[in-house]
């Protein structure tokens, strides 16, 4: 039998609800299976760990054919908020927590949480802008060092 996966390094690069959750679910799932996990947030993915923004992550209703609504309608005011509310309700039913609670849970489970230095500089962010679970802001080189022996998953 092939070797079991022992370590994963998950990159979250998107800031929409559907962009953020898969990475979080995979990180949490890894820890639940006893697999070491590291989360690395880059570009708009950083929103998921920015203190002021992480409670306001929304579903993208425009440019997403799988929403099955016409693009023009997806762009109407309030559409994204409504879709987000509906989806959050459904997620709660199957025990998927809101972003902040999820990040806390994943961090408590022993998963390290990193932000991407290049993006932090580009957006003029500071360490104080992030939630307390942020372990460090690191370069891509450090990311690869920390990912030694891990499977890298880009989302």
């Amino acid at each position: 039998m092939a070797e079991p996966i022992e370590k994963v390094s998950i990159v979250v690069s998107k800031g929409s609800l559907e962009g953020v959750y898969p990475g979080l679910i995979m990180a949490n799932g890894a820890r639940m299976e006893g697999i070491e996990a590291t989360l690395f947030f880059t570009f708009f993915g950083l929103d998921a760990i920015i203190d002021k923004r992480m409670d306001h992550i929304k579903v993208a209703t425009v440019g997403n054919p799988a929403m099955h609504i016409p693009t023009m309608m997806g762009g109407l005011p309030g559409m994204s908020a409504m879709a987000t509310k509906m989806m959050s309700k459904e997620m709660e039913k199957i025990d998927i927590p809101p972003v902040r609670e999820f990040i806390e849970m994943i961090h408590d489970a022993g998963c390290e949480i990193y932000g991407c230095l290049a993006t932090v500089d580009m957006f003029h962010l500071k360490k104080e802008d992030f939630c307390e679970q942020l372990d460090d802001i690191i370069t891509v080189g450090e990311f690869y060092e920390k990912s030694s022996g891990a499977q890298i998953i880009f989302t």
């Binding site: 949490n28 639940m32 025990d95 998927i96 927590p97 849970m105 408590d108 489970a109």
Partner: peptide
């Protein structure tokens, strides 16, 4: 059986 969130 409950999973990790319910346990927490």
């Amino acid at each position: 059986a409950p999973s990790i969130r319910k346990l927490t």
